[in-house]
Amino acid sequence: MTGVVSYLVFFACVVLILGIVTLGLNLQWGFTGLFNAGVAGFYAIGAFTHAILTAAPQPQYLGNFGLPWIVGVVAAMAATAAAAWLVGVLTIRLRGDYLAIASFGIAVSIQLVTLNWEALTGGSQGITRIPKPLAGVFDTPLAFNLWYLALLAAIVGALYVALERIVRSPWGRVLRAIREDEAAAIALGKSARRYRLEAFVLGSTMMGLAGALYASFIGFVSAFDFLPIVTFQVWAMLIVGGSGNNRGALLGTFVVWGIWTASGALVTKLVPPTYAAQGAAVQVILIGLLLVLTLLFRPQGLIGEEAVVSRHAKD
């Protein structure tokens, strides 16, 4: 029984962490129309910044400063924001699919750096012994996971409320105006470039935050946690849930991650270990099919964007 409960708590934690990533992507794509295909890269920057700053010191590493948890979280967000700003300044003016190609390339490059710069990131060994916040207070892993779940729920709740307010604010309306008709938004005197850059940096910062929360939850990060498949999974979550809707983003995260874990568990049970690679392939094929079928048969996702009508238009 405790086994099932601990597993569900663990699952919920991962869903909430990935939910933050999907909310960030929703701000970029769902509300602003920015095609960021480099999600895994920004998530990785957050996770590694946190790990490098907070992990227990080891002689063979440049980093591992053993700083407090909160310093790691704030620095992870700052580092991701800085990286997103640099990337954005260079690429934000590109046409939709060119931005996708460029950001995909950025994620590949970031992953290569995490794999090859061994002194800083541990290379394929990764960084271990990342401290978990207040871990000393709790005697069992389950107690810690429950506390972490509460912490994540509070963070996601706060982010959700903030995002809902932001997208309804004048700033959020400009984002949607740019998404719908960039030329018209520019004609109304809005600097599309500035707003797009702001949305890009803000969304990526959320991905960085999620990376830090992931690192301090698992206690270990390596370059193999941030392969391009992560980007595709997060996109599937957003599309399946419904882009342009924050509740849709969270629901999609739950559904897609649920299918991913359930199929993984099933594969481990049914498929003999010699065919583990084939079993894992089935998992990915399911995600790909889910993405394509959603686009074909339910393009708005499970809960699509709500139509927003100006309150002045009702009279």
Binding site: F232, A236, A281, V284, G288, L289, L291, L295
Partner: peptide
């Protein structure tokens, strides 16, 4: 998607999905 007049970038998402399926069929 083309016939439905889908957003041009929806084609790119669909390509993501198609790529995942195609590559992992080979692994399978």
């Amino acid at each position: 998607l083309r016939r439905r007049g889908a957003h041009p970038l929806a084609m790119v998402f669909a390509a993501f999905g198609a790529a995942l399926v195609m590559r992992h069929l080979v692994v399978l």
